[in-house]
Amino acid sequence: MLDIRDINVFYGGIHAVKGLSINIQEKKIVSVIGANGAGKSTLLKAIMNLVPVKFGEIYFQGKRIDKLSTQEIVKNGISLVPEGRMLFTHLTVKDNLLLGAYNYYKKITKSELEKRIDKVYELFPILKERQKQISGTLSGGQQQMLAIGRALMTDPKLLILDEPSMGLAPLVVKEIFKVVKYLNEQGMTILMVEQNARAALKLSDYGFVLEVGEVVTWGRSEELLADEKITKAYLGG
């Protein structure tokens, strides 16, 4: 579904992603793990063309996307929940969701739009209760839920999450992972970057391990969880 071929990303002189290739199959959950600064977020930004891919190619459903604008990539069915949530903190919960569907205003009817919002509210009922609240005043967990909800409003085929569990209590993380699992069961493909590597691998079908901008190992999640070298290095023993 998503075919990343030998991509390279630079920040000035820093070579942050070095000839990285990853292939993501449809309807799978795929995790990317790695130490701080390994280039995980950079990889995700490159997929969305938030940072330019200098060499290499990215294909989504057979179509080359690495030269498309972020807006076009979103239209093609990829949505990123960015690191740090990046809500429109001055707007209400509902407005954040409405803006999530910005690409669709002229294309879908009001009732379809409401239906899409209701779907998000079903996944995260708290958002419905808080729909008139200014999003900047939500708790961390609620903000993460809203960030995911907003990303879902673009109706993605591939949902990408950058550290969704960052700074959240275990119970909230559990709830969010449950939703991710549910979305996947509904047919959505998931690509996830996580510090919480053990939990992420347990949830996912495949895992990729990144080290200074390169994939050093990858495989089925069970295999990675069983690999002693990996558990020592990334899963805290």
Partner: peptide
Amino acid sequence: MLGKAMSACAVNPTAAKLVGI
């Protein structure tokens, strides 16, 4: 919505791009 989208660009241009603005 156009006005809110414009204000969204100001608050967080990256997020605005990510919702297709």
